[in-house]
Design a protein around this nucleic acid. Structure first.
Lengths: 253, 253
DNA sequence: ACCTGAACACCGTTCAAGT
DNA sequence: ACCTGAACACCGTTCAAGT
């Protein structure tokens, strides 16, 4: 309605005014906003990121943010993109070696896992910002990773459909690990260290199993495994299972 | 602080007052609340479920809900439990047949997938209500499914650690499918039918790929697959890949 | 070009008060 | 035992107005 004369058209100009340095404070910038937002996300989780909280951390008014970002989804999208882009890009620089498809998929996937482990808000943030159709957004980075994984599977000899199923399994695995990583991070923030959390979880599950009137043989058998497992090894273990399935189809072609 | 004399102690008494039938309206009940909440969740998604919206759909004041539920997380937990419990229980009644481990795991997993497809809010709702330690909650149902899957894997001959990795892969797969199911449902609500959404998605991805200055060979090769895929088949395809990986370890024991 | 304060239309939750 | 209205402390977003 109001014809805003200074609306940032196609995409925001980065580093709005490079010249001009007589303003007292560091002034606001898109980069500063994203950096501050990521810090809050990493330290306190997705729920803690509030535009009001962010603006007060930056020492500005809430409304000021809206000159730099479209809305909260846009902010989340850009936070995710900033984390994902450089890592994915680095892996895409490597040449595809069909003979080393398994090692190369493992490398790329674990790199993504490490990102998700260190920033457990990533999967939720990107799924909330799903409408953001920025060509520079997190979606492009995710698609780029998806493409590289699929390209390696094609190089290994899978059909497009088989590769489609395999990339589905791998990316779903990453999303699922994100869910448990974000639970783990929340527990960590609430106090207890990892060993304590694991012990409680395993105990809690056994208690649930005991209170239910059905027997839970697997729960009981796995309790020791669960009580003392490394989440990264859990990721790798399930990934290897998926890649074993892939390998079988490579052989039988 | 205020010693509420009528606080519902351990757990809510079901069907609070069976006698007494002279009140005009159907009066509120936990069952009615949950049923109405599930209807909103199914038709309009997780974000649409607001306590105010729910209370007005029931024709009562917002605060009234709090006599029946602890808080919103409790409500979500009970909604999820109501969906999950009967289905999981039904599958747990069947006896475990070690020779048919693969078919039985496939049956249970696809039953869970169908639940997630019909109620895409399930994974998010249960992960938000993670602190709910009700023995009757959604957690117990999820753990029961997890246990049955794991028990079948043990019966097939896997070690507890291998089974742990396999259940991880399968449940992460379900969570990931939930994320895309909920995106699909949102698109459906926004108007377009599935074929249209698929066409747009595939087109959109190709456009992104084209605009980026990297080549995306897999994206291009898979575009036709993506543009015309059935999500249930996608689920089954990836599941079969995982189970192929499992089968390999069964053979080599 | 960039930032502000104040307002709008929402949230979940609490609580004294009604019947 | 069950429900209410009103209030509290939040949200994201808009907008006229300042510099």
């Amino acid at each position: 309605m109001t014809d805003n004369p200074a609306a940032p058209g196609a995409r925001r100009t980065r580093r709005p005014s490079e010249r001009r340095a007589r303003r007292s404070a560091p002034t606001l910038s898109l980069e500063a906003i994203i950096a501050a937002a990521i810090e809050i996300l990493d330290m306190e989780g997705l729920d803690a990121l509030t535009l009001r909280r962010l603006s007060s951390a930056l020492g500005v008014g809430v409304a000021s943010l809206y000159w730099h970002i479209d809305d909260k989804d846009d902010l989340l999208d850009q936070c995710a993109a900033n984390i994902l882009r450089p890592v994915i890009a680095r892996y895409r620089e490597r040449a595809i070696d069909p003979d080393r498809w398994r090692a190369q998929i493992t490398d790329l996937s674990t790199a993504q896992y490490d990102l998700v482990r260190d920033h457990p808000w990533l999967p939720l943030a990107t799924s909330e910002a799903v409408n953001q159709i920025t060509p520079s957004g997190a979606h492009l980075a995710i698609i780029a990773a998806w493409d590289r994984t699929g390209a390696l599977l094609l190089a290994a000899g899978l059909s497009p459909l088989e590769a489609f199923h395999a990339t589905t399994a791998i990316s779903n695995h990453l999303i699922g690990m994100g869910a448990s990583a974000s639970r783990a991070a929340a527990a960590q923030r609430a106090g207890a260290d990892r060993a304590e959390v694991l012990r409680q979880t395993s105990e809690h599950m056994l208690a649930l199993a005991a209170r239910s009137n059905e027997t839970m043989p697997y729960l009981i058998a796995t309790a020791p495994v669960l009580a003392d497992h490394d989440e990264r090894e859990q990721f790798m273990g399930a990934l290897n299972l998926i890649l074993d399935g892939v390998e079988q189809r490579v052989r039988h072609d």
